[in-house]
Amino acid sequence: MEYEEAKKKITEALQKKLKTKSKFYFSDLAKILGEKPRVAKKLINQMVQEGVLEYWSSGSTSMYGMPGTGKQAHAEHED
């Protein structure tokens, strides 16, 4: 899949779900992309590099979300 297409797919899908949640597991993203994990990882890594996605971590589990979204974003970014 082309990177731009992947980016569009991800941002659209995440935007749609934003009302209920802002953080997603890697496998949710891979499913949205319809790609195998290793292919999905390359695309998602690039989205993180470009600031389209950012990581969130519970300490033991990692999730992804769009920067600035989520109810705790305020506190976490300490602005």
Binding site: K23, V48, Q49, Y55, W56, S57, S58, G59, S62, Q72, A75, E76
Partner: peptide
């Protein structure tokens, strides 16, 4: 309290 900060830019841990 827990906070979801994970790391430095580009790292997830």
């Amino acid at each position: 309290k827990h906070g979801g900060i994970v790391g430095v830019f580009g790292y997830g841990g």
